[in-house]
């Protein structure tokens, strides 16, 4: 959304409300919702990217829509803004609204979305609830100075092992507890033992599904 640089955020919303036949009292309400009450009288030309993004969201909310379509809503937001947007979107969903977000920031998508559709070159590659995306296969990341020996032990157990760095392994098909047991049994020192977060899995899945194409087409 683009704003006239010389018009205040509040007046921008008043224009939209007027054109769309929406009660102007909604303007102050949506300004408060997006946290722009104090900046509402300032010219939009002086807003940061994050404030512009908030103003755009305020405009979307004017009509109290039941379906919201947001394209890359995180752009320009600072970490606090991103957290705020995440909560706000979850809040809308909790109110029974539908929020459709298109985004390349997969970590955010994994945190906020109930359902994910992966589209590549206009084709739907995968559609699933976020929780089902990883399937039954969980991944464990383990760091150890003795990673070579640990890798052998894991392979013996039948788990799929990938070597990430000199001392770091990603193990598929095992839980963190299982990997910890194996390491302890063999007296292997472990520096890190974590279950791979869903976010990384979503990214992994995206790369696999899209064949991790690196070339850019217009």
């Amino acid at each position: 959304m683009v704003f006239h640089w010389g018009r205040s955020g509040g007046n921008h919303l008043r224009v939209v409300a007027r054109a769309a036949g929406i009660d102007p009292s909604r303007v102050d309400e949506v300004l408060e919702t997006v946290g722009l009450t104090a900046a509402g009288d300032r010219r939009a030309g002086g807003y940061s990217r994050g404030m512009q993004q908030r103003l755009a969201l305020a405009g979307v909310l004017l009509g109290d829509p039941t379906v919201l379509i947001l394209d890359e809503p995180n752009i320009g937001l600072d970490p606090a803004g991103i957290a705020w947007l995440r909560e706000t979107m979850r809040g809308w969903a909790a109110q029974g609204r539908t929020v459709l977000v298109s985004s390349h920031v997969l970590s955010e998508v994994a945190l906020v979305a109930d359902r994910v559709v992966i589209i590549n070159y206009g084709r739907v590659l995968r559609e699933a609830d976020t929780g089902d995306l990883g399937g039954s296969e969980s991944a464990v990341i383990v760091r150890s100075p003795d990673s070579t020996m640990l890798e052998e032990l894991c392979r013996t157990e039948g788990w799929r092992v990938e070597r990430d760095e000199a001392d770091s392994l990603t193990i598929h098909g095992a839980s963190a507890e299982q990997v910890g047991q194996i390491a302890a049994g063999a007296g292997i020192v472990v520096h890190e033992l974590t279950t791979e977060a869903g976010t990384a899995q979503l990214e992994q899945m995206f790369l696999e599904l899209t064949g991790s194409k690196q070339e850019v087409s217009s």
Binding site: H4, G6, R7, S8, N11, V15, R18, A19, A20
Partner: peptide
């Protein structure tokens, strides 16, 4: 009428006019 009103609002809310 609301569209014309919106256009007027656009006019009065910048310094151009």
């Amino acid at each position: 009428n609301s569209l014309i009103g919106a256009e007027f609002l656009k006019l009065w809310t910048t310094r151009t006019a």
